[in-house]
């Protein structure tokens, strides 16, 4: 599978380095290795969601209980979570680290991914949620660290968009 195992490991290690001990997730192709790494790690609590918005509540609960967490999802997972983000994270000022695999941009071959990708940044911007693209492995550890720092200090949601060049290895 051309999902980058090496870069998935870089992302996973960065999450652990930022103190994340709970991950909630719904799979999509680019997340398969990351979710498996969380599942196989005895130090990590993996919550398999039925729908992404639940993850916003779970992360808030984990924060109240003193545990750092992250949500792993795709563009449509973010769009599905918006009510929870507004009604919990923003309304109650709760830190939330979202890792969103950024489908639907240049290079996308799946027609069904192309709309969700178009609206992710405008919706993040409409909610004033700070976000950054991660497209190269060397950006990942500092990017995750800085995103977590801002989430914790601003008591706000933040998003990292995991790009195609980071997560996908084109087969020659």
């Amino acid at each position: 599978m051309p999902v980058s195992l090496a870069n998935s490991k870089v992302v996973y290690d960065a999450l652990k380095g930022a103190g994340v001990r709970l991950v909630s997730a719904l799979p999509e192709t680019w997340l398969v290795h990351l979710v498996r790494m969380a599942d196989e790690d005895a130090e990590m609590i993996l919550v398999r969601l039925a729908k992404e918005e639940e993850g916003v509540g779970i992360s808030a609960g984990a924060h109240f209980g003193g545990v750092r967490s992250a949500m792993l999802m795709q563009n449509h997972g973010f769009l599905q979570s918006v009510n929870g983000i507004v009604g919990v994270s923003l309304l109650y000022k709760v830190p939330l680290l979202m890792l969103v695999t950024d489908r639907g941009g240049f290079g996308e071959r799946d027609p069904w991914q192309t709309e969700g990708g178009k609206y992710t940044r405008p919706v993040l911007d409409a909610l004033h949620i700070a976000h950054e693209d991660l497209t190269r492995p060397e950006q990942v550890a500092p990017g995750v660290d800085k995103a977590m720092a801002l989430a914790q200090s601003s008591l706000s949601p933040v998003a990292l968009l995991l790009g195609r060049d980071l997560m996908w290895e084109e087969v020659a």
């Binding site: 918005e53 916003v56 509540g57 992360s59 808030a60 609960g61 109240f64 209980g65 929870g84 009604g87």
Partner: peptide, 25 residues
């Protein structure tokens, strides 16, 4: 006591996050 004044449906999700973060509580 935490009163979730919005986000209907997520009270149990918040509870789950707390339960996992604090297994002895």
């Amino acid at each position: 006591f935490f009163y979730l004044e919005h986000a209907m449906g997520l009270a149990s999700s918040i509870g789950l996050g707390i339960a996992l973060a604090q297994p002895h509580r």
